[in-house]
Design a protein around this nucleic acid. Structure first.
Lengths: 123, 123
DNA sequence: ATGTGTGCAAACAGTTTGCAAGCTT
DNA sequence: AAGCTTGCAAACTGTTTGCACACAT
């Protein structure tokens, strides 16, 4: 079981008020507000154990480093605006992905990533 | 326009007989069969210009380095077996992804990545 | 007291860039 | 001949690990 340390608390607090998934570097920057001497290695180690224990989930973004978000949200995907670069959550995946796979292959997990233009960049 | 060099030919040849998308490192290994002193920097530079000129496409795999495959294939996605690690192509994307996005957001492109178990690892 | 967690620096992996020499056009 | 291309090494970014010390339990 994970210990309750100042740095771990700082990292979890960094997610408050952030609705988009955060990268390790972003977390380091944010969490240093609560734990000044926090190091990047600690962030990686904490993220790894928090994912292992189910407190966070890794958001795997194609062609970019993983980001992290609190778990407990229900199943969703992400949408990246190519205008402003922001990543939004997309609720409700009602896709029948199993039928895409060649016969005999069992689909156990999937990642869907959408790219486009968000409302405020649409102009 | 790209010049026709031994190294570039070697890299393109490396795709023959490979049905799965290849990583830069894999390409280096394979292409050295045709061009012994080939360096990794040349592979990256060649890949970049081949993508720019439309001969290859980058396959963006969540949480892993990009892979490359010849262009001209029609729209498809990928399936990674967590047993053997091989990446298979999945034909025919008939998903209505547009409806997933929040109203006002325009979906222009998508990536779908499936994970599971392939036929020979299913045992 | 025990042993996990931390910070720092060094080690690594993947990718990019500078430069002199080589090859394509 | 002109200039793109190459190989090598060095630089960089993101991530991991070794180690002595600090801290949670």
């Amino acid at each position: 079981m994970q210990r309750n340390t100042r740095q771990r608390r700082a990292i979890l607090r960094a997610f408050d008020g952030n609705s988009t998934p955060l990268s390790p570097q972003e977390l380091l920057r944010e969490a240093r507000a609560y734990s000044r001497r926090l190091g990047i290695a600690t962030v990686y180690r904490a993220l790894k154990s928090m994912v292992r224990e189910g407190h966070l989930v890794a958001v795997k973004i194609p062609g970019a480093p993983d980001r992290y978000e609190p778990s407990g949200k229900h199943h969703h995907h992400h949408f990246e605006c190519r205008g402003c670069g922001r990543v939004f959550e997309v609720e409700g995946c009602r896709l029948n992905l199993g039928r895409l796979a060649p016969k005999g292959m069992r689909v156990e997990r999937h990642e869907v990533f959408l790219y486009g233009t968000c409302t405020s960049c649409a102009g």
